[in-house]
Simulated assay, not measured.
Amino acid sequence: MTELHLWLRHEIRSTERRTPIVPSDARRLVENGVKVTVEESPQRIFPVEEYEKAGCRIAKAGSWRSAPGAAVVVGLKELPDEPSELINRHVFFGHAYKQQPGAAALLRRFAAGGGALYDVEYLVDEDGRRLAAFGYWAGYLGAALAVLQHQGRLAAPLVPTTKEELDARLPAEGFTALVIGALGRSGRGACEAFRVAGIEPTRWDLAETRELDRPALLAHDVMVNAVLATTPVPPFLREEDLDDPARRLRTLCDVTCDVGSPLNVLPVYDRTTDWTAPARRLREKPPLDLIAIDNLPSLLPRESSTDFSAALLPQLLEFGTGGAWVRCLGRFQQACREVGIEEGEFRRV
């Protein structure tokens, strides 16, 4: 059996502090016969020396481009625009299966090089439940930032912190909050952050969104969306809702950040916000502020990385062999067909 070689890449996004594999789990991989190469990274929350002590080989940032073809490149967020041909198997969040901007181009890069995308969002069990996710911390931070923004206490630029430091800033009172998707990972995280803040949120999930009560939605001061739609559903907010004179809603946080996708349940904005400018004004009278940051868990990089890595570790130990990876590869091939890539173009994987 060929030795599994995992290559942990540096993240090109300057605000990305997380890692999908923490040093303690890298050590377990090495102890189980996996070769692990870790790229140097100036912003990763765990210093590269901890990986070296765990038995990993160290490489220069960005050197995955010349990694052996059999190496499996592991990361989190987007790849750089080059090379145009991707020869390796990659494990990361590709955001390429729902007609997002740039999705077809990314898939064609894999087809051109003979590589494959194992999108972690689609690494699921037999019932379709995700096996490794940052959802809880995304929801927690989304609600936390919404609380701070609504209270006029959200300072920019955002900087990574610890849960203890964040929680000390959260206590609030005097407003109502709504969490949509409250039963999922992200929704549970959002509800917990509101609890820490001293706010008992209204909790909606499938039952409450089948026939949406828009007046009830707009009657809340703060709303957090934690729903990631996989099939078309009527939008939760429309442009005309923002101009409703009865709207009480003042702060909106979209944890999902599905902007650009036809499945977006909040088609009232066209671009995300970021650490430099975390909130954007959608309406002036009455005011409505949007928070839509697509790497929220990176604000709690140590906690979120540790949880994610623990969930991903058993899957990595079975890379390519377990049913979850087979399903993951099948979803990549389906996405390729959907953008017109012929079967033979990605058969090398």
Rank of each mutant, 00 (worst) to 15 (best):
Y51C: 01
C56T: 03
R57F: 13
S63T: 13
W64R: 06
A67D: 04
P68F: 10
A70M: 10
V72T: 09
G75C: 12
K77T: 02
L79I: 09
P80T: 00
P83S: 12
S84L: 13
E85T: 15
I87T: 13
F92W: 07
G94F: 01
G94V: 01
G94K: 00
A96P: 00
K98W: 11
P101E: 01
G102N: 10
L107H: 02
R108K: 15
A111M: 07
A112P: 00
A116W: 01
L117E: 01
L117W: 04
Y118W: 12
V120I: 14
E121S: 03
Y122M: 06
D125M: 10
D125K: 09
D125P: 04
D127N: 14
A132H: 05
A133L: 05
A133G: 08
Y136R: 11
A138D: 02
G139S: 11
G139L: 06
G139F: 05
G139M: 08
L141R: 04
A143G: 06
A146R: 00
A146H: 01
Q149D: 15
Q151S: 14
R153E: 15
R153F: 15
R153N: 15
R153V: 15
A155M: 11
A156R: 03
L158M: 10
P160L: 04
T162R: 02
E164F: 12
